[in-house]
């Protein structure tokens, strides 16, 4: 019953923000463009009967074509769960920050920035959180080379020489 209500709201929301709705393991997934993420999440937070008002998790995902910022929404007052995925352009990874909606997104967005280089517009303090400030590159991107450059060069040279 509850899920039906949520289903309806999500469908409505999807048509408004031009998103797609999927379902996986009983959880609705709403895929939207990065530009409409604030609107989507604000709406989801205020669904009249089934508000998804608890930001459970926020993480970046690299799908090699584009980045996704995945928001796991839930509620402390009901069973409703929703996963919102915002597509972010790889070349220009900019998305609105959700810290105005949930203060708890602060560290999570910093982590996503740290690992993927996704820039959250409007974040109060967008700095690297785990890695040091002058770290080069974004390690969780699929095209990140894990070996240090010196090691990689040594390996390459040996192969070339053989």
């Amino acid at each position: 019953m509850e899920n039906n209500v949520l289903n309806r709201y999500v469908e409505e929301l999807a048509t408004r923000v031009n998103g797609e709705v999927e379902e996986s393991f009983g959880v609705l997934i709403l895929k939207v463009k990065a530009a409409s993420v604030t609107e989507t999440l604000k709406e989801a937070k205020n669904f009249p009967d089934a508000p998804c008002d608890f930001l459970h998790d926020l993480c970046g995902v690299d799908t090699t074509e584009h980045f996704e910022v995945v928001y796991q929404l839930a509620s402390l007052h009901g069973p409703q769960r929703l996963r919102v995925k915002a597509m972010v352009d790889r070349e220009n990874p900019v998305i609105d920050s959700v810290t105005p909606i949930w203060e708890g997104a602060n560290f999570l967005e910093r982590e996503a920035y740290d690992m993927f280089g996704i820039i959250f517009k409007g974040h109060p303090n967008l700095k690297r959180i785990y890695l040091w400030d002058d770290f080069e590159g974004y390690p969780m991107r699929k095209d990140y080379v894990t070996e240090p450059i010196e090691v990689r060069d040594v390996v390459r040279k040996r192969i070339e020489g053989e």
Binding site: H56, D57, C59, V61, D62, V70, Q72, E103, G104, N106, F107, L108, E111
Partner: peptide, 14 residues
């Protein structure tokens, strides 16, 4: 392809 860990205390520390 991706494992995301949602650590509880990381968020609680905020």
């Amino acid at each position: 392809s991706r494992v995301r860990i949602r650590p509880a205390t990381f968020i609680n520390i905020q």
